[in-house]
Simulated assay, not measured.
Amino acid sequence: MIVNLAAGVQAFTSNAFLVAGERTVLVDTGANFDVVERIREHTDDLDAVVLTHTHPDHVGNLEAVKAAFDVDAWGYDTAVEGVDHAIEDGDTVVLGDHEYVALHTPGHKDDHLCFLAEEPGICFAGDLVFQNGSFGRTDLPEGDRATLIESIDSLRERIGDDLAALHTGHGPSVTRSPADHVELAGQMARQA
């Protein structure tokens, strides 16, 4: 089960995905809403927080979640406050009932990760790519358009045309031809 706990929130936040199963994990915590209450609507136990990156809209609720569920946070850079354990490029993490490969995808932010499970064909893309060819902004500190394009290309090479779901950091998840949206994001990033 994958549920976007930020759905319907009218505040500046990222999506926050509860991935339930053998290892119940929150992918990004969102910000500016009570995510702890929303987690408790689905489960009383949380095993970990996994971060796509550490922009404030993705980690604003991190301390509240860690305190409420006594869990650690995993991300790319443990030098960032609140990140307890490092996930390196190519590491495998269990989210719910599936193993995901962590892909270091900088360009939007240096510590950006995507998580890909080839089976069942699910990708958590953070702010790398979004629906309809949109892509992460590069005008913030650590943003770099050329690096972002390389990261999008790298993700596109890793995913198959049979990718079933692309869960993005903002906006709706993509479940119809998600690989095409990644391809389009690469094209649009080159033109912008």
Results as ranks from 00 to 15, higher is better:
Leu5Asn: 08
Ala6Pro: 00
Ala6Leu: 04
Ala7Arg: 13
Ala7Tyr: 09
Gly8Lys: 08
Gln10Trp: 02
Ser14Leu: 04
Ser14Asn: 06
Asn15Arg: 06
Phe17Arg: 04
Leu18Phe: 07
Ala20Ser: 15
Gly21Tyr: 05
Gly21Val: 10
Arg23Cys: 03
Val27Trp: 00
Asp28Leu: 01
Thr29Met: 03
Thr29Ala: 05
Thr29Phe: 04
Gly30Gln: 03
Asn32Cys: 02
Phe33Pro: 00
Asp34Ala: 01
Val35Ser: 05
Val35Pro: 00
Val36Ala: 04
Arg38Asn: 09
Asp45Thr: 11
Asp47Asn: 13
Asp47Phe: 12
Asp47Val: 15
Asp47Thr: 14
Ala48Asn: 14
Val49Trp: 11
Val49Pro: 12
Leu51Met: 13
Leu51Tyr: 07
Leu51Ser: 12
Thr52Cys: 14
Thr54Ile: 09
Thr54Asn: 14
His55Ser: 15
Pro56Thr: 07
Asp57Ile: 15
Val59Phe: 05
Ala64Lys: 13
Ala64Gly: 01
Lys66Ala: 03
Val71Asn: 14
Trp74Ile: 01
Gly75Ala: 08
Asp77Arg: 08
Asp77Phe: 06
Val80Thr: 10
Val80Asp: 10
Gly82Gln: 15
Val83Cys: 13
His85Asn: 15
Ala86Gln: 15
Ala86Lys: 12
Ala86Ser: 11
Ile87Cys: 11
Gly90His: 09
Gly90Ser: 08
Gly90Leu: 13
Asp91Glu: 11
Asp91Phe: 02
Thr92Phe: 09
Leu95Val: 01
Leu95Cys: 06
Gly96Ser: 02
Asp97Cys: 04
Asp97Val: 01
Glu99Asn: 11
Glu99His: 12
Ala102Asp: 11
Leu103Cys: 12
Thr105Glu: 14
Gly107Met: 08
Asp111Phe: 08
Cys114Thr: 15
Phe115Asn: 12
Phe115Met: 11
Leu116His: 10
Leu116Asn: 09
Ala117Trp: 10
Pro120Thr: 00
Ala125Cys: 02
Gly126Lys: 02
Gly126Phe: 00
Asp127Ser: 00
Leu128Thr: 05
Leu128Pro: 01
Gln131Ile: 06
Asn132Val: 07
Gly133Glu: 06
Phe135Arg: 07
Phe135Asp: 10
Phe135Ser: 12
Thr138Phe: 13
Asp139Tyr: 15
Pro141Ile: 14
Glu142Ile: 03
Glu142Ser: 10
Gly143Tyr: 10
Asp144Phe: 07
Asp144Cys: 09
Leu148Gln: 06
Glu150Cys: 03
Ile152Ala: 02
Asp153Ser: 02
Leu155Tyr: 00
Leu155Trp: 04
Asp161Trp: 13
Asp162Glu: 15
Asp162Trp: 07
Asp162Cys: 04
Leu163Ser: 08
Ala165His: 09
Gly169Ile: 13
Gly169Ala: 07
Pro172Arg: 10
Ser173Tyr: 09
Val174Asn: 05
Thr175His: 10
Asp180Gln: 11
His181Phe: 01
His181Tyr: 01
Glu183Thr: 03
Leu184Lys: 06
Leu184His: 02
Ala185Phe: 02
Ala185Pro: 03
Ala185Gly: 01
Ala185Ile: 02
Gly186Met: 00
Gln187Asn: 05
Met188Leu: 13
Ala189Thr: 05
Ala189Lys: 07
Arg190Phe: 12
